[in-house]
Design a protein around this nucleic acid. Structure first.
Lengths: 226, 226
DNA sequence: AACTTTTATCGAAACTTTGTTAATAGTAAA
DNA sequence: TTTACTATTAACAAAGTTTCGATAAAAGTT
């Protein structure tokens, strides 16, 4: 269970982190909104805990922006009681729950667990989610792909490959892994099938645009140049 | 906004009621589990607030039983901090949120409003209603279909397929899913039955009209082009 | 620079999926 | 029992997808 904790108060941050780690969570901490924004884009978590008042970018904004490209990862907001007042409703920004300071650590842990559990039990969410990388949007439900809002029609295999690359978020995807996951366990290695498909994909999603996203790491595989 | 408050502590009950009324809620109060059970069955509310410790029947049981026949009305549980401990997870009984005593009235009101709002935004129960997509009207009660006010007679299978597509509201319906839901759990995959029925359907509901609604997503399934 | 290895590209062939029609089997009411 | 209708299967055509092999181009090595 990997959670992201965004809280600028160093003492509170430290306390929460310690408690959650002791409760078997894998905790990544961030102290300001600007860094949080980047981390949220790059890494995927089971739950995100956002303080409202943060340097550079507040929790509400962060959450709202996050929801544009990720609708499933649960977000829990931490609000001071006096912040409740004017914000009217913490859920307006797309948060799934909030906790008013001061709170019991026990309750925080419980709410996190509930959110994660609820999230895992939801029917479509994982598969329904839109995956966005740069200007490419992959809609898993409708199996459609858009780049710069232009629909690109991919065959099932092309789609699978693009999806795998996109899920890696720019990380290198080993050729063998790609082959294994798309053509199943055993596959004779003496063909250039992957190269052919990468070529098909490039024709469709790279050639018509300025920025070429699919990069080759010679000897290893492919990755998206984000 | 009608809420039901089930709380045996007379002072707290009174306080909550007053605050919520002042916040424009219409509040009905009950002081024990037995009466609550009856009221919940008889009357419908926008939100139910349940204390955990109640005479005769506790909040967890009440909630669990309620969920058997009502899955949509939001339930908020009120728990004392020391009750949190062993109950592990207030959501196990089907509650939508909980609040640990002592709490701020302001927060209670806010959470109630969120729950109601969230509930209203949820995709609907339109089982008995007429389903309309583009110029097609499906009357679920009479099992008749019209397009542009012209009645189209469909066989039961054709109807089932059209209904499933219509309920997806233009979203892709996976072929396997379609097969499973219409021919039941197991079905040998080596037939073209779906294609045949899609063909029948197209003849009846697409061919005689201008706009062709049933689209094929090759390799995946079908969807309505809305 | 010459050679080897790896990746890109292309077209044709093989294969899969989907669309269409027709024949056949099943079922329930006249 | 016959009739009218629905459901299923089969056969083939059409459309679309995947694979393969040949060759070109690029990258890495000596």
């Amino acid at each position: 269970m990997k959670v992201l904790l965004v809280e600028d108060d160093t003492t509170l941050n430290q306390n929460i982190k310690e408690y959650l780690m002791q409760e078997q969570f894998d905790v990544e901490v961030v102290f300001d909104g600007q860094i949080a924004e980047k981390v949220m884009k790059k890494t995927s978590f089971d739950c995100i805990i956002l303080d409202v008042n943060l340097p550079f970018k507040n929790g509400y904004e962060l959450c709202k922006e996050f929801r544009v490209y990720n609708k499933s990862t649960p977000v829990l907001m931490l609000t001071a009681f006096d912040e409740l007042e004017d914000k009217v409703n913490g859920f307006d920004c797309g948060a799934d729950d909030y906790l008013t300071k001061p709170f019991y650590m026990k309750e925080l842990a419980m709410r996190i667990r509930s959110l994660i559990k609820r999230n895992n039990n939801l029917p479509g969410q994982e598969t329904t989610e839109n995956i966005t990388v740069e200007d490419i949007v992959i809609n898993q439900k409708t199996k459609t792909v858009k780049r710069s809002d232009i629909e690109i029609i991919l065959t099932p295999r092309e789609y699978q490959i693009l999806l795998k690359l996109a899920l890696a978020k720019g990380e290198l995807v080993d050729k063998q892994e790609l082959v294994k996951e798309i053509w199943g366990g055993s596959f004779e290695a003496n063909t250039n099938t992957i190269e052919v498909y990468i070529n098909f994909l490039r024709k469709k999603i790279d050639k018509p645009f300025d920025k070429q996203l699919i990069k080759t790491k010679i000897g290893y595989g492919y990755y998206l140049n984000l």
